[in-house]
Design a protein around this nucleic acid. Structure first.
Length: 607
RNA sequence: GCCCACGUAGCUCAGUCGGUAGAGCACACCCUUGGUAAGGGUGUGGCCAUGGGUUCAAGUCCCAUCGUGGGCUCCA
């Protein structure tokens, strides 16, 4: 569904369970069946795959003789309403293997599912089953589906005014790109038409806030066909915001005990071999370049460089922890189809850091990073977080006992912060466990930004050591962390969170002065100079437009403060304030306005 | 990468059945000097994404490439 690709898929376990037991869930599942019936009536030779409820609706995958058009969707939707009105009961029935195979004899995808359920013990979505496999079907009218349910009792329980088919998309059978490409119809279904309306209005709001539109409208960032896909160009206003973010980030890191480092953009193949990237990450790296007969690669990560710096001298336990941060620009190959505005690009700058410490220090360090991260995110206006702890996967490097210690320190840190979290068993990288933090934006969508990862692999590969109290060499712990994630993605999320109306401290233009007539221009400039001298970002709209048009322009650029200046203001040495949200506090002295803005900047207020 | 759709002026979009391009905004100039979301006029601006093909004739039909969108998969 639109936008969901970059949102966190996982809801918390509790939410997920609640949803699966809800009436809404059954209703959507039932709507999917009704849709499949409508599609099969239209394409009797069509093959059906799977059709589950999803977060805000449902989908069903089909193998059809021709691509579906928007007109087809309308037709199918209309037919769904008729089917609903026909009032079919949803009838559950357990069937034997033979029966099932007979019923779905001309449905190859269902036959494959039957095989899987019986042999591999998985359900129709490929998830493992706990009990002994049982085959069941649901009938509604002429439509029969291999299905575990649950469903509503009768199609009439589906509100015909609260369903809508949304889009058609390609989807591989079982998500495997070697399998056939199916056509997936996405739909949404609700209890009432009001809820549907509400959902559609929410969708419109999502579109209004789409960062891809806003970065263009607000002249922040562009992409260029002739420059290459997935490569962002930061215009002066976008650059202004980025610089504010970076300056703030650097200042906070200095306070947080980090040192700032810089590293090159390319490195020898030898380095990437040693780090293992050419083994396990090559698919994401660009082709090497030849420099005097030696292969060099553009960096997809910063870690090997930081390790080289670590190894320039013998490190003592007294030196640790080292916290080295870098706004490191990396390049990763992404398949063309996955690029998406600023949220998925090929070149981006990570707010990266590596922490090298002793095993004794690790717990404190993790807690420290976690706190630091939450504080940083809060400063940008995010207040709700979801935390995920990912543990040791089957394929891993490093001793289980180190993993255990690492996981424990992660868990303790999360608990010390009083955060609730979900554990993703076996979801860690092969080189270490991790904490991911997802933030909730103004529209309630979640985005993964922060990742804090242990790395048991690189210290081994590079034979990193420090001299302990005992005078012997020890292996340091290494933690890799990115808090904002990447500046590109973070910026995209920020734009959508604020709908382009940034808080004052981040606004590229904080104040626009609007002289009413030409005779007010000079005074407007003198006020502008005063404000600029105080460090504000100010523009004077001295174009020949009328005041109304100037206000409109400033509104559309989402400038927080507009100062209208006419005869009255000039005479009294004042400014007349209008806010971006439409409020008009009115005339005040320049000093009073200044105090107001400075307060808003300092407190990082919206206005 | 794969499936589907789309690509016309700086931006947002029209363009019928194939007959060699339109609007609004923006921009420039002129008139207007106006109190809280668009004053009026004139004008500039397009190798219809790129390359091939079909045709007497292609923005329009076909193929390829590049880019964008909705998804699949993957990730910061």
């Amino acid at each position: 569904m639109r936008g969901s690709l970059y949102m966190a898929r996982r809801e918390t376990m509790a939410e997920q369970e609640r949803y699966e037991e809800s009436h809404l869930y059954r209703l959507r599942h039932s709507a999917a069946h009704v849709m499949a019936q409508a599609v099969l009536e239209k394409f009797p030779e069509g093959k059906i795959a799977i059709g589950p409820p999803i977060e805000k609706g449902f989908y069903y995958d089909f193998d059809l003789p021709r691509p579906l058009t928007p007109e087809d969707l309308e037709e199918i939707e209309a037919r769904m309403r008729e089917i609903i009105a026909e009032g079919h009961d949803f009838v559950y029935q357990e069937v034997s293997e033979e029966e099932a195979r007979r019923i779905f004899a001309d449905q190859p995808y269902k036959l494959e599912l039957i095989d899987d359920i019986l042999s591999a013990g998985t359900d129709e979505y490929g998830e493992p089953l706990e009990e002994t496999p049982r085959l069941s079907i649901y009938k509604s009218g002429p439509f029969v589906d291999l299905c575990r349910g649950p469903h509503v009792n009768n199609t009439r329980e589906i509100n015909p005014d609260a369903i809508k088919l949304l889009s058609v998309a390609g989807a591989y059978w079982r998500g495997d790109e070697r399998r056939p490409m199916l056509q997936r119809i996405y739909g949404t279904a609700w209890e009432t038409s009001e809820q549907l309306e509400q959902y559609l209005a929410w969708q419109e709001e999502v579109e209004r806030r789409d960062h891809r539109k806003l970065i263009k409208q607000l002249d922040l960032i562009s992409f260029h066909e002739e420059g290459g896909a997935g490569l962002a160009y930061w215009h002066p206003k976008g650059g202004c915001i980025r610089q504010i973010i970076e300056d703030f980030w650097r200042a906070e890191h200095a306070k947080g005990g980090y040192d700032i480092v810089f590293s090159p953009h390319i490195g020898k193949a030898e380095l990437w071999e040693r780090s293992g990237h050419l083994d396990f990450y090559k698919d994401s790296m660009y082709s090497p370049m030849d420099i005097e007969g030696v292969e060099y690669y553009l960096k997809p990560m910063n870690c090997p460089f930081h390790i080289l710096m670590y190894k320039t001298r013998t490190r003592s336990y007294r030196d640790l922890p080292l916290r080295w941060a870098e706004l490191g620009t990396v390049y990763r190959y992404e398949r063309s189809g996955v690029l998406h505005g600023l949220l998925r690009v090929r070149g981006f700058t990570q707010d990266d850091a590596h922490i090298f410490c002793t095993p004794e220090q690790i717990e404190d360090e993790i807690l420290r990073v976690l706190r630091f991260s939450l504080d940083l995110l809060r400063a940008f206006g995010f207040t709700e977080f979801q935390v995920y702890l990912s543990t040791m996967p089957e394929k891993h490097v490093g001793e289980p006992q180190r993993w255990k210690q690492a996981q424990e320190s992660l868990r303790k840190a999360i608990e010390a912060e009083g955060l609730s979290y979900d554990v993703d068993e076996g979801g860690g990288a092969f080189y270490g466990p991790k904490i991911d933090i997802h933030v909730k934006d103004a529209l309630g969508r979640t985005w993964q930004l922060t990742t804090i990862q242990f790395d048991f692999n690189l210290p081994e590969r590079f034979d990193m050591t420090y001299v302990g109290e005992d005078g012997k060499e020890h292996r340091p712990y290494m933690v890799h962390r990115a808090l904002l994630g990447s500046l590109e993605r973070f910026f995209g999320v920020l734009v959508e969170h604020y709908g382009g109306a940034f808080p004052v401290w981040l606004s590229p233009v904080q104040v626009v002065l609007i002289p009413i007539a030409d005779r007010h221009v000079e005074y407007a400039h003198s006020v502008a100079e005063q404000l600029k001298a105080e460090g504000l970002r100010v523009e004077v709209d001295d174009s020949g437009e009328r005041m109304q048009a100037k206000i409109r322009d400033a509104q559309m650029q989402k400038v927080p403060y507009m100062l209208v200046i006419g005869d009255r203001e000039m005479e009294a040495g004042q400014v007349n304030l209008r806010l971006r949200d439409g409020r008009v506090p009115g005339a005040m002295s320049v000093d009073a306005f200044l105090a107001l803005v400075q307060e808003a900047v300092k407190e990082r207020h919206l206005l």
